[in-house]
Amino acid sequence: MVELSLILPPEPDERWQLAKQMGVTSAVVHPLEIGDGQTEWTYDELTGMVNWFEDAGITLDVLEGSVPLTDRIRLGKEGREEDIENFKRFLRDCGAAGIPVVCYDWMAGIRWARTEAHVQSRGGSLVTGYDDAKMRGGPETDYTDVTREQLWDALEHFLTEVVPVAEEAGVKLALHPADPPKDEVRGVPRLATSVENYDRILALYDSEHNGVTFCQGNFALMETPVPEAIRHFGDRINFAHFRDVEGTPERFVEIWHDDGPTDMLAAMAAFEDVGFDGPMRPDHVPTMAGEDNSNPGYHTKGRLFAIGYMTGLLEKIGKS
């Protein structure tokens, strides 16, 4: 059964208590929540964080984004072997500390891209958006000569090196889609943009430890319907983000979980049908009344609403 999770800070505050009051005892640690963008972790830091959560009755199930994956690795540049060895050390430490899932991305240079953070939504709430026209132009970067095959070759090398270590450590890797799922953003190619590309990625190293972060908002912008894509990947989904968007990869806005174009009940039913029992967290929630929008998409009230909505969907499916 789906394990509902929440992004929680690595040290206790009221959000830990709110999560437990909502019945959520599974945590995801993410650098946007940490605030300092930490990506380097020692074994002692990881173990200390796990122990602190466990003492509070919470399991730390995913490290997301806060991983030592460099663009030297993504681009196959000089120095990548040293960085890959560091990533292997990190996976071994995660395994020894008992952290079962690591979520990473393969977006070089420009990563998660948004152009708007104050889009008015229901009742005056605020959501984020993306407009590719606003992303175009600007000064040239060090990434303008990157080729798609360069990224494919670097990803294959990375997976060949690290997936065996992940298997030994008992850690599942979960690749996040390109966000937005466009073939390129400001001239920099992207790979994880379609179901077909994910099939190629999973075939680069065939293992349950080489899996998918099924970010539902990104897959909603791809051509394959969301429930169909969930069933397509099945047990290769190692982590899930439950959200929705409205628009196209070139121009979209985030949307309330219960107010978008995707059939969210059908999506949740598909996760249940394939036997997904990993962590699933609500993602990119609206900023609500009383919140200052200083961290767009990641404030607390919208997440609590989303957990209630997701719980209701799971109850409906269970009764069906």
Rank of each mutant, 00 (worst) to 15 (best):
D145M: 10
R148E: 12
L151M: 14
W152M: 02
L155Y: 06
L155A: 13
E156H: 08
F158L: 14
T160V: 01
V163K: 03
V163D: 06
P164L: 11
E168L: 05
A169E: 02
A174N: 03
L175C: 12
L175Y: 07
H176W: 10
P181L: 04
K182R: 12
D183F: 12
E184T: 09
G187P: 13
R190L: 04
T193G: 10
S194N: 10
S194P: 07
V195R: 14
V195Y: 12
E196Q: 13
N197C: 00
Y198V: 06
I201C: 04
Y205E: 11
Y205P: 04
D206I: 05
D206K: 07
S207T: 08
S207D: 05
N210K: 11
V212A: 05
V212P: 07
V212F: 11
T213L: 13
T213H: 10
C215D: 05
Q216V: 09
Q216L: 07
N218H: 15
F219E: 06
L221M: 07
M222S: 04
T224V: 11
T224R: 13
T224Q: 10
V226F: 10
I230M: 03
I230G: 02
I230H: 00
H232C: 12
F233T: 12
D235F: 02
F239N: 03
A240P: 01
D244T: 07
D244I: 05
G247F: 11
T248H: 05
P249T: 15
R251N: 15
V253W: 09
E254V: 03
E254W: 00
I255W: 05
I255Q: 06
W256Q: 05
H257A: 10
D258S: 07
D259G: 07
D259V: 02
D259H: 07
D259Y: 09
P261I: 06
L265E: 14
A266H: 12
A267I: 13
M268D: 04
A270S: 15
A270F: 13
A270T: 13
F271T: 03
F271Y: 02
D273L: 04
D273N: 00
V274I: 08
G275H: 04
D277A: 14
P279E: 14
R281V: 09
D283K: 01
H284D: 01
V285F: 01
P286K: 02
